[in-house]
Amino acid sequence: MRFGVVVFPGSNCDRDCYHVIRNVLRQDCRFVWHQESSLQGLDAVVLPGGFSYGDYLRVGAVARFSPVMSAVAEFAQGGGLVLGICNGFQILTEAGLLPGVLMRNRSLKFICKSVTIRVESTETPWTNRYQSGQALRIPVAHGDGNFFIDSKNLSELQKNQQILFRYCSPEGEILEEWNPNGSIEAIAGICNRERNVLGMMPHPERCSESILGSEEGRILFESVVEWFRQR
């Protein structure tokens, strides 16, 4: 399976994603510079974390106009797999590939720690190797992770089971005190209706090897490879 990792000016998790895909998953992977306008030959594209364009104006707002983003939109439209992690998630919402918006954390503080998220739906290319309701230990590192969406679009997300991850207690309970950033409905990750575009604030690429304390993020990448193999 061939992955691409997009590199925007200010991306800083691109190398980590590349490492996991290439050296842990043993899949083909290449970097895609933000000026490129074709994703031909790729099966999945990762928009990595970081601070693209210095987070100027609004997070993700400027990256959205990079030449590569038209290609990403086209790729997604054609059913290509698109994974936005952290800043990548922010870019996907600004580009209109996912609904809602990531706002400043409720605490106004940058949060860098491990949290627990619960897998809400396993019927996706991204989560098919998790157990439904499984609680994952996974790192977050963001200042703007507070997911907001209006009530009409929220019920759409719920109805179509597009909410894939929610912040929870270590035991897997959804409780406001375990919501790190104030996200509505404790949402940590959503997919589009067609389920081929995923955006999530936590970093699966930072917990894909036992030396890093958890391997639970690797299952997400394995799910994608498995889904692709069975297609």
């Binding site: 609004r58 707002a61 106009f65 919402t93 600004e94 918006v101 907001f148 969406i149 209006d150």
Partner: peptide, 8 residues
Amino acid sequence: QLLVNPVI
């Protein structure tokens, strides 16, 4: 196109 995110 740029200055405003109409979601919020």
